[in-house]
Nucleic acid binder design. Structure first.
Lengths: 143, 143
DNA sequence: ACGCTTTACTTGAACGAGTCAAGAATGCCA
DNA sequence: TGGCATTCTTGACTCGTTCAAGTAAAGCGT
């Protein structure tokens, strides 16, 4: 477990002003991995009741662009955010309930993620989403 | 190049009634891989001017559920459809213009797509999206 | 071929995540 | 501390997609 991140420092380091909404959003996402925007708004308002949803949208975009947050959006889901950035990890998504889990890169290096035929594209990232059933939904299906 | 698919047979084989809108949608997606719903509506209306957008939405869902089409939706994109189903292929997406290309499974087998830690999930599919720049956009960026 | 039942389509309204725009407030630097 | 750029508030709005009610048509059995 790393020590509690220094949010103001992170913001300044990214060239962003330190504001209460931004600190609150950073904290919310650090505490609730894979939360969607609505959840973030709810968590943020527990400590800062007057923030507008627009502010949260703006902040999430600013932090994502700055690389402090990562945005993920599996098919059929709304946008979700997580604070694990800079590492090469992927996600498992439950087809039934939408639950998301983290998955470290399948192999130490990533040779399997080099496309066999890249169509001339210049590829800079391979995103992997594992689809299936979470333990709870798998159990419910079997019963 | 496979022979022209027998759309009526495909529909019947999937337990679906054969209707003009369904034939038109099947044909449209076979001719325009990775088309979004709006494009499909446009193409379908070239031969069948009176179809409602709702019908196209319904048909696309029915065909996707039946396994005759595959739906893909990269982050930040609307739903897109393709007729290549049943094989294990992935996609490259241009970050700039959204263009999509097909990519065959990276390696012959898929050992790299077995999650190292599956969080107890029962995984049935690994979806890979390669992000980058298409040839045109890469060239535009460099100039 | 005919009618009947079920499934599909049309029409029109509605929903919800996300965005746009204008003005007020706040952070930050000199 | 003053000034200015950035950020937040407020409120309207867009757009892809879905919902609901009624009409049309596919396909089965006779």
């Amino acid at each position: 477990m790393p020590t509690t991140p220094d949010f103001p420092q992170m913001l300044r380091g990214a060239g962003l002003r330190v504001t209460r909404p931004r600190l609150a959003v950073l904290d919310a996402v650090h505490q609730h991995a894979h939360a969607d925007t609505d959840t973030v708004i709810g968590v943020v308002r527990q400590g800062l009741p007057e923030v507008s949803h627009q502010a949260v949208y703006d902040v999430l975009r600013a932090l994502t662009t700055a690389g402090l947050l990562r945005r993920i959006q599996p098919s059929g889901s709304v946008a979700r955010y997580e604070s694990r950035v800079g590492d090469n990890h992927h996600h498992v998504v439950c087809r039934t309930c939408g639950a998301i889990g983290d998955v470290d890169c399948a192999v130490g290096h990533a040779p399997c993620l080099t496309a066999s035929d890249d169509n001339g594209f210049r590829i800079d990232e391979a995103e992997v989403i594992y689809w299936g059933q979470c333990p709870d939904c798998a159990a419910a299906l079997r019963s």
